[in-house]
Simulated assay, not measured.
Amino acid sequence: MTEKIYDLHSHSTASDGTLTPTELVQRAAQQGINVLALTDHDSIAGLAEARMTANELGIEFINGVEISTEWENRGIHIVGLGFDETSPNLTALLHKQAETRHHRALAIAEKLEKVGVENAFEGAKNLANGEVTRAHYARYLVQIGKVSNEAQAFKKYLSQGKSCYVKSAWVDIPTAIQNIHQAGGLAVLAHPLRYTMTNRWLKRLIGEFKEWGGDGIEVAGAGQTVDQRQLLARWATEYDLLGSVGSDFHYPCGWIELGRSLWLPENVTPIWQALA
Protein backbone atom coordinates (compact mmCIF):
# COMPACT_ATOMS: atom_id res chain seq x y z
CA MET A 1 0.00 0.00 0.00
CA THR A 2 1.35 3.42 -1.00
CA GLU A 3 2.02 5.76 1.91
CA LYS A 4 -0.15 8.84 2.17
CA ILE A 5 1.30 12.21 1.23
CA TYR A 6 0.69 14.88 3.89
CA ASP A 7 1.11 18.64 3.76
CA LEU A 8 0.05 20.35 6.98
CA HIS A 9 1.22 23.91 6.32
CA SER A 10 -0.08 25.93 3.38
CA HIS A 11 -1.55 29.34 2.61
CA SER A 12 -4.29 30.79 0.42
CA THR A 13 -5.66 34.22 -0.46
CA ALA A 14 -7.38 34.20 2.93
CA SER A 15 -3.99 35.45 4.17
CA ASP A 16 -0.85 35.99 2.08
CA GLY A 17 -1.06 33.16 -0.46
CA THR A 18 -1.81 33.84 -4.12
CA LEU A 19 -4.15 30.89 -4.80
CA THR A 20 -7.74 30.84 -3.60
CA PRO A 21 -8.63 28.05 -1.18
CA THR A 22 -10.24 26.17 -4.08
CA GLU A 23 -7.19 26.61 -6.33
CA LEU A 24 -4.88 25.56 -3.51
CA VAL A 25 -6.74 22.29 -2.94
CA GLN A 26 -6.89 21.64 -6.68
CA ARG A 27 -3.12 22.06 -6.88
CA ALA A 28 -2.72 19.74 -3.89
CA ALA A 29 -4.73 17.12 -5.75
CA GLN A 30 -2.50 17.54 -8.81
CA GLN A 31 0.52 16.92 -6.59
CA GLY A 32 -0.96 13.68 -5.28
CA ILE A 33 -1.55 14.93 -1.73
CA ASN A 34 -3.87 12.76 0.36
CA VAL A 35 -4.10 14.90 3.51
CA LEU A 36 -3.97 18.71 3.48
CA ALA A 37 -4.21 21.43 6.12
CA LEU A 38 -4.84 25.05 5.18
CA THR A 39 -2.99 27.19 7.74
CA ASP A 40 -3.52 30.82 6.86
CA HIS A 41 -1.98 33.51 9.04
CA ASP A 42 -4.34 34.29 11.94
CA SER A 43 -7.31 33.46 9.72
CA ILE A 44 -9.75 30.60 9.28
CA ALA A 45 -11.75 32.39 6.58
CA GLY A 46 -10.68 29.96 3.86
CA LEU A 47 -11.42 26.70 5.66
CA ALA A 48 -15.02 26.16 4.54
CA GLU A 49 -14.22 26.69 0.85
CA ALA A 50 -11.08 24.54 1.01
CA ARG A 51 -12.90 21.74 2.84
CA MET A 52 -15.70 21.68 0.26
CA THR A 53 -13.21 21.37 -2.60
CA ALA A 54 -11.21 18.73 -0.73
CA ASN A 55 -14.36 16.66 -0.22
CA GLU A 56 -15.13 16.89 -3.92
CA LEU A 57 -11.60 15.75 -4.85
CA GLY A 58 -11.26 13.01 -2.24
CA ILE A 59 -8.59 14.74 -0.15
CA GLU A 60 -8.71 14.45 3.63
CA PHE A 61 -8.87 17.99 4.97
CA ILE A 62 -7.63 19.18 8.36
CA ASN A 63 -8.56 22.55 9.85
CA GLY A 64 -5.47 24.68 10.29
CA VAL A 65 -4.26 28.16 11.22
CA GLU A 66 -0.85 29.78 11.72
CA ILE A 67 -0.91 32.09 14.73
CA SER A 68 1.62 34.90 15.02
CA THR A 69 3.15 35.06 18.50
CA GLU A 70 5.90 36.95 20.29
CA TRP A 71 8.70 35.33 22.30
CA GLU A 72 11.79 37.12 23.60
CA ASN A 73 11.15 40.05 21.23
CA ARG A 74 10.97 37.66 18.26
CA GLY A 75 8.09 36.66 16.03
CA ILE A 76 7.34 32.95 16.34
CA HIS A 77 4.63 31.08 14.40
CA ILE A 78 2.44 28.44 16.01
CA VAL A 79 0.36 26.20 13.75
CA GLY A 80 -2.95 24.90 15.07
CA LEU A 81 -4.27 21.65 13.57
CA GLY A 82 -7.52 19.71 13.87
CA PHE A 83 -9.48 22.24 15.91
CA ASP A 84 -13.15 23.21 15.97
CA GLU A 85 -13.33 26.37 13.88
CA THR A 86 -16.47 27.51 15.73
CA SER A 87 -14.62 27.70 19.07
CA PRO A 88 -15.55 31.10 20.57
CA ASN A 89 -12.19 31.54 22.32
CA LEU A 90 -10.17 30.82 19.21
CA THR A 91 -12.44 32.99 17.09
CA ALA A 92 -12.04 35.89 19.53
CA LEU A 93 -8.26 35.48 19.55
CA LEU A 94 -8.07 35.53 15.75
CA HIS A 95 -10.31 38.62 15.64
CA LYS A 96 -7.89 40.38 17.98
CA GLN A 97 -4.95 39.27 15.84
CA ALA A 98 -6.69 40.67 12.74
CA GLU A 99 -7.08 44.05 14.44
CA THR A 100 -3.39 44.01 15.36
CA ARG A 101 -2.45 43.15 11.78
CA HIS A 102 -4.65 45.96 10.41
CA HIS A 103 -3.02 48.58 12.65
CA ARG A 104 0.38 47.26 11.65
CA ALA A 105 -0.50 47.50 7.96
CA LEU A 106 -1.51 51.15 8.33
CA ALA A 107 1.72 51.93 10.19
CA ILE A 108 3.78 50.26 7.45
CA ALA A 109 2.00 52.38 4.84
CA GLU A 110 2.92 55.54 6.77
CA LYS A 111 6.56 54.52 6.81
CA LEU A 112 6.52 53.66 3.11
CA GLU A 113 5.08 57.07 2.32
CA LYS A 114 8.03 58.68 4.11
CA VAL A 115 10.41 56.88 1.74
CA GLY A 116 8.45 57.95 -1.32
CA VAL A 117 5.91 55.17 -1.80
CA GLU A 118 2.48 56.80 -1.93
CA ASN A 119 -0.90 55.04 -1.59
CA ALA A 120 0.84 51.89 -0.42
CA PHE A 121 -2.02 50.66 1.74
CA GLU A 122 -4.53 50.99 -1.10
CA GLY A 123 -2.13 49.28 -3.50
CA ALA A 124 -1.47 46.40 -1.12
CA LYS A 125 -5.18 46.12 -0.29
CA ASN A 126 -5.95 45.60 -3.96
CA LEU A 127 -3.66 42.56 -3.88
CA ALA A 128 -5.19 41.12 -0.71
CA ASN A 129 -8.34 39.09 -0.22
CA GLY A 130 -8.37 39.76 3.53
CA GLU A 131 -6.00 41.48 5.93
CA VAL A 132 -3.01 43.27 4.39
CA THR A 133 0.31 41.62 5.28
CA ARG A 134 3.93 42.46 4.60
CA ALA A 135 3.78 40.01 1.69
CA HIS A 136 1.13 42.16 0.01
CA TYR A 137 3.31 45.25 0.45
CA ALA A 138 6.22 43.33 -1.05
CA ARG A 139 4.11 42.39 -4.07
CA TYR A 140 2.98 46.00 -4.45
CA LEU A 141 6.58 47.25 -4.35
CA VAL A 142 7.40 44.80 -7.15
CA GLN A 143 4.30 45.91 -9.08
CA ILE A 144 5.29 49.59 -9.03
CA GLY A 145 8.92 48.86 -9.86
CA LYS A 146 10.49 49.84 -6.54
CA VAL A 147 12.15 46.42 -6.32
CA SER A 148 12.63 43.53 -8.72
CA ASN A 149 11.28 40.78 -6.47
CA GLU A 150 9.59 40.20 -3.12
CA ALA A 151 12.77 39.06 -1.38
CA GLN A 152 14.36 42.39 -2.28
CA ALA A 153 11.35 44.23 -0.87
CA PHE A 154 11.85 42.55 2.49
CA LYS A 155 15.62 43.04 2.40
CA LYS A 156 15.35 46.75 1.56
CA TYR A 157 12.17 47.86 3.34
CA LEU A 158 10.12 45.33 5.31
CA SER A 159 12.39 43.10 7.40
CA GLN A 160 13.21 43.77 11.03
CA GLY A 161 15.70 46.61 11.27
CA LYS A 162 14.75 48.11 7.90
CA SER A 163 13.13 51.52 7.37
CA CYS A 164 9.53 50.33 6.98
CA TYR A 165 9.43 47.51 9.50
CA VAL A 166 6.75 47.77 12.19
CA LYS A 167 6.82 45.58 15.28
CA SER A 168 3.47 44.09 16.34
CA ALA A 169 2.20 43.18 19.78
CA TRP A 170 1.23 39.61 18.94
CA VAL A 171 -0.22 37.17 21.45
CA ASP A 172 2.26 35.15 23.51
CA ILE A 173 2.93 31.46 22.86
CA PRO A 174 1.15 30.04 25.96
CA THR A 175 -2.04 31.91 25.00
CA ALA A 176 -1.90 30.59 21.44
CA ILE A 177 -1.41 27.02 22.68
CA GLN A 178 -4.21 27.36 25.23
CA ASN A 179 -6.70 28.62 22.63
CA ILE A 180 -5.79 25.86 20.17
CA HIS A 181 -6.25 23.24 22.89
CA GLN A 182 -9.55 24.74 24.04
CA ALA A 183 -10.74 24.33 20.45
CA GLY A 184 -9.73 20.65 20.50
CA GLY A 185 -6.64 21.08 18.33
CA LEU A 186 -2.91 20.41 18.47
CA ALA A 187 -0.25 23.14 18.64
CA VAL A 188 2.84 22.87 16.42
CA LEU A 189 6.00 25.00 16.40
CA ALA A 190 6.36 26.09 12.77
CA HIS A 191 9.62 26.03 10.75
CA PRO A 192 12.05 26.28 13.72
CA LEU A 193 15.21 26.71 11.67
CA ARG A 194 13.91 29.84 9.94
CA TYR A 195 14.17 31.90 13.10
CA THR A 196 17.44 33.80 13.22
CA MET A 197 18.82 32.44 16.47
CA THR A 198 21.52 30.08 17.66
CA ASN A 199 20.86 26.43 18.43
CA ARG A 200 21.09 27.25 22.13
CA TRP A 201 18.25 29.76 21.82
CA LEU A 202 16.28 27.41 19.58
CA LYS A 203 16.50 24.65 22.17
CA ARG A 204 15.33 27.08 24.82
CA LEU A 205 12.35 28.01 22.61
CA ILE A 206 11.50 24.34 21.99
CA GLY A 207 11.85 23.51 25.67
CA GLU A 208 9.54 26.33 26.75
CA PHE A 209 7.07 25.46 23.99
CA LYS A 210 6.92 21.93 25.39
CA GLU A 211 6.55 23.19 28.97
CA TRP A 212 3.62 25.36 27.89
CA GLY A 213 1.84 22.33 26.47
CA GLY A 214 2.97 22.37 22.83
CA ASP A 215 2.29 19.15 20.95
CA GLY A 216 4.51 19.03 17.91
CA ILE A 217 7.27 20.55 15.85
CA GLU A 218 7.62 20.86 12.09
CA VAL A 219 10.40 18.43 11.23
CA ALA A 220 10.00 18.19 7.46
CA GLY A 221 9.82 21.35 5.36
CA ALA A 222 10.76 22.70 1.98
CA GLY A 223 14.37 23.34 1.03
CA GLN A 224 15.95 21.52 3.96
CA THR A 225 19.21 19.64 3.95
CA VAL A 226 19.20 16.09 5.28
CA ASP A 227 21.27 17.24 8.26
CA GLN A 228 18.73 19.95 9.12
CA ARG A 229 15.87 17.45 9.04
CA GLN A 230 17.79 15.00 11.18
CA LEU A 231 18.57 17.76 13.69
CA LEU A 232 14.88 18.64 14.00
CA ALA A 233 14.04 14.95 14.31
CA ARG A 234 16.53 14.63 17.16
CA TRP A 235 15.00 17.61 18.95
CA ALA A 236 11.49 16.24 18.43
CA THR A 237 12.56 13.02 20.14
CA GLU A 238 14.54 14.81 22.85
CA TYR A 239 11.58 17.02 23.82
CA ASP A 240 8.94 14.34 23.27
CA LEU A 241 7.18 16.27 20.53
CA LEU A 242 5.23 14.89 17.59
CA GLY A 243 6.64 15.51 14.13
CA SER A 244 4.72 17.52 11.55
CA VAL A 245 5.37 18.16 7.86
CA GLY A 246 4.59 21.24 5.81
CA SER A 247 5.74 23.00 2.67
CA ASP A 248 4.61 26.46 3.87
CA PHE A 249 3.39 26.89 0.29
CA HIS A 250 2.31 30.44 -0.62
CA TYR A 251 2.45 30.54 -4.42
CA PRO A 252 3.68 28.44 -7.34
CA CYS A 253 7.45 28.65 -7.69
CA GLY A 254 10.42 26.46 -8.48
CA TRP A 255 11.70 25.80 -4.99
CA ILE A 256 8.56 25.22 -2.87
CA GLU A 257 5.77 22.86 -3.89
CA LEU A 258 2.86 21.32 -2.04
CA GLY A 259 3.76 17.90 -0.63
CA ARG A 260 7.25 17.78 -2.13
CA SER A 261 9.79 15.68 -0.17
CA LEU A 262 7.91 15.92 3.13
CA TRP A 263 9.09 12.64 4.64
CA LEU A 264 9.63 12.12 8.36
CA PRO A 265 12.67 10.32 9.77
CA GLU A 266 11.71 6.91 11.19
CA ASN A 267 12.39 7.81 14.83
CA VAL A 268 9.77 10.60 14.83
CA THR A 269 6.15 9.99 15.83
CA PRO A 270 3.90 11.62 13.17
CA ILE A 271 1.46 14.20 14.43
CA TRP A 272 -1.32 12.69 12.32
CA GLN A 273 -1.41 9.71 14.67
CA ALA A 274 -2.76 12.11 17.30
CA LEU A 275 -5.12 13.76 14.80
CA ALA A 276 -6.78 10.49 13.82
Rank of each mutant, 00 (worst) to 15 (best):
E3T: 03
H77F: 13
C253Y: 08
P192C: 03
A151V: 02
S168W: 10
D227Y: 04
L262S: 09
E70F: 01
E150N: 04
N34S: 11
A124S: 06
L242G: 03
I256L: 05
Q224D: 03
E3F: 06
P174C: 06
A176G: 06
Q26E: 15
G82T: 02
K96M: 13
E3N: 11
I177F: 11
Q224R: 15
A169I: 04
P21I: 03
W71A: 04
D172T: 05
T225P: 12
S261P: 00
H9T: 01
Y251K: 09
G216C: 08
S87A: 13
G223K: 11
W212V: 00
E218V: 09
V171N: 07
N34T: 05
E85W: 09
K114I: 01
F249A: 02
E257P: 00
Y6Q: 06
Q30L: 06
V25T: 01
H9V: 00
F209A: 07
G185V: 07
R134H: 08
T2D: 12
S10G: 01
A28W: 10
I206V: 15
E257A: 08
P252A: 08
L106R: 14
H103P: 00
L186M: 14
Q30D: 11
L193H: 08
S68G: 03
D172V: 00
S244M: 04
V132T: 03
L275N: 09
P252I: 03
G46H: 06
R74E: 14
V188M: 15
T20P: 04
E110H: 12
A187P: 07
A105H: 01
T196S: 14
N34M: 02
L47T: 00
V171D: 09
K96E: 15
R234W: 05
A190S: 12
F209T: 00
G259M: 08
D84G: 06
G58W: 07
E3R: 13
Q97G: 02
A92N: 14
E122S: 11
L205V: 01
C164Y: 08
T198L: 07
A190N: 07
T269P: 00
C164S: 12
R139E: 03
W255G: 00
L141T: 03
A138C: 04
R74Y: 09
H102G: 00
K162I: 00
Y165V: 03
S68T: 09
G259H: 05
A236H: 06
H102V: 01
V79Q: 08
H250S: 08
A54C: 08
Y140N: 05
Y140R: 04
L38A: 03
R101S: 03
L205F: 01
A183D: 06
I206D: 14
I62G: 11
P265G: 12
P192T: 04
H191T: 07
T2A: 14
G184W: 14
E70R: 14
